[in-house]
Design a binder for these strands. Structure first.
Lengths: 338, 338
DNA sequence: GGGCGGGTTGCATACGTAGTCAATCCCTGT
DNA sequence: ACAGGGATTGACTACGTATGCAACCCGCCC
């Protein structure tokens, strides 16, 4: 059933030219006369010739494959990033090879990526160990950490300005009259969560306030719900919670309303971070910080392509501006209109 | 910077064996003595040897690459499918190559997939033209349509029992006392939407009823919102709407509540299809039909692997059972407990 | 002791393309 | 008419691995 496929040699034979000529007719910018190219393309068309990208990758040393490593796609911010990244890469002639990883799995997975001779690596919801970063650098494979960074590593990173986002939210909540403001983190070792927290407490400090409670949600719905229960139980309940991302914020809102009968934002204000599509839904109307997904993807692609074309790995860190999106989940400052 | 990578010949030289021996040491089931394999692996370890998957694909004719074609990931059902599929394939030693497509783009994209010599193709939110199906068959590349099918095509398909799901919802709504039941479709040419609709109207018929209104939402939030406005405006407003998938159902609920001030389910019942994670959120608590994502992925992988191993393309259609998930977005039958 | 067979190993080749190098072609200026 | 040069073309090789085939080793049985 599986017939031998049509090769450039077959096309060459039919067109009565050399195999080289066929190859050149298919590589833009090569030295071929218009006449030759026409003849070759006609023959190729007749035979249904399709250049073999694997063979091309083998000889040229460039697979035009970009690996994307992700640990989960539950948080809808990642599918959004994923789709845009795939489209942006395709537009430049690259393809995305997707790897899902489990905790502790990363080393094996990165080895696999390198086996496929990928031209670049994007790590979107997983961390890179120093050893792996070294290995990638050794093979000359550029790595971009997307929506995270590891200070000690020779890998580039693209993030939004999480610190500034946290600050904006702190100001917004304080100015909205909140006095007991709690925070729910993602993972303790996530740079994103840490930066959002740091900016948040800095922002509180700038308004002469301190935090009122803190919990760790682990970026999961269950963890966020548990954190919400802990924070909302005590007598001195917070009047606002900043949740490290939207995905957890929805769970917190559900727990607050269902299990504690709180009205949002009258009894409790909630703010998140990311501005995933669901944040705009009426059921949640989440006030949040919008990450510029499109610009983050563009920065990722441009860092990658720059390094791939120049065959050199340099570290580069892009930090993109964020924007406060005010909806209904948090009481607003009175003077917001002025 | 980009050093020449370590090859099997380098390992062979260090271990003082032939390149064949190195190759055999890395292919499970090959004829190598235990002694030889140990020596080779030790040398490989020392050099940091990593088999070149591209070269292997070239010589063996099997890339262990599976292409996934999708048109959008907005509907959260697809990221769920995507993640599970990627994991299932990885577990069997395959990698997923992701292609996003735009309408009218598919032909070019499928050509690219074939250029990469993928061993199989999964089409998740896009359609396959007859010409392309032919070409895939010609190259011996198995194709599985996931969550859709095209009757006339030589491609396998995996779907849930959309007809039965529609029927179940019709019975549920009628038994819940609804008398004016409308439907919002996805795309007219989507097999999934058509089947859900057919099952739905069949179910209504079985209870001696007919539909009360119909609109087409085009699987988009905006389209669904527009459809909701159309259906809810007239004097004789429906008392229930079946929306062809959850993703649109959320938008319909928002419009009903915000723009028409309707209470759900007191004034209007809404049911969806898919059971995406958000359907369980309190803000929506959507009564819906659960598609068995895990089983659909398993069926997809097993159809693919079967055909890849036997190097033969046969058409196969898997239809998996669905399950009604009752939440709060629709009034329930009184006798539900019996 | 000779032959036989199973288990190992190395040699040589093939996979399909890109790119190097030398040869050839065509056109122009003198 | 001829030299010179740029454009075009073809022969050839390399990329890194898998595998058929032949050679080899070793132990066993008759």
């Amino acid at each position: 059933m599986a017939k031998r496929s049509v090769t450039s040699a077959d096309v060459a034979r039919l067109a009565r030219v050399s195999q080289s000529a066929v190859s050149r007719s298919f590589s833009p910018g090569a030295s071929v006369s218009e006449d030759m190219r026409r003849r070759v393309l006609a023959a190729a068309e007749r035979l249904g010739y399709r250049p073999n990208a694997i063979a091309r990758a083998m000889i040229s040393g460039r697979s035009r494959l970009i690996a994307l490593l992700a640990a989960y796609l539950d948080n809808h911010f990642y599918p959004v990033l994923l789709e845009q990244l795939a489209r942006a890469l395709q537009a430049r002639g690259y393809q995305m090879l997707l790897f899902m990883t489990d905790p502790g799995d990363q080393d094996i997975v990165v080895q696999k990526m390198l086996q496929y001779q990928v031209d670049g690596i994007v790590m979107a919801s997983a961390t890179l160990s120093p050893g792996l970063a070294d290995e990638c650098a050794k093979t000359g494979t550029p790595v971009v950490l997307l929506n995270r960074y590891v200070p000690a590593l020779a890998a580039s990173s693209v993030t939004s300005d999480n610190i500034e986002g946290g600050r904006l939210l702190a100001h917004f909540l304080v100015d909205g009259g909140h006095r007991r403001i709690a925070f729910i983190a993602g993972h303790e070792d996530s740079s994103t969560s840490r930066d959002r927290e740091a900016g948040f407490f800095k922002g509180l400090g700038e308004r002469g306030m301190t935090g009122a409670g803190r919990a760790v949600g682990g970026y999961s719905v269950a963890g966020a719900a548990e954190s919400a229960r802990r924070l909302l139980s005590p007598r001195k309940r917070p009047d606002a919670i900043f949740v490290a991302n939207d995905h957890m914020a929805f769970a917190v809102m559900d727990v607050a309303r269902r299990e504690f009968g709180l009205r949002i934002p009258e009894d409790l204000s909630i703010v998140g971070f990311d501005d995933v599509p669901e944040a705009a839904w009426d059921g949640y109307a989440l006030t949040t910080i919008a990450q510029p997904a499109k610009e983050m993807v563009e920065a990722t692609v441009s860092i990658l392509t720059e390094q791939m074309e120049r065959r050199t790995v340099v570290r580069r860190a892009a930090v993109l501006p964020v924007r406060l999106v005010v909806r209904g989940s948090a009481r607003k400052p009175k003077a917001a209109g002025c």
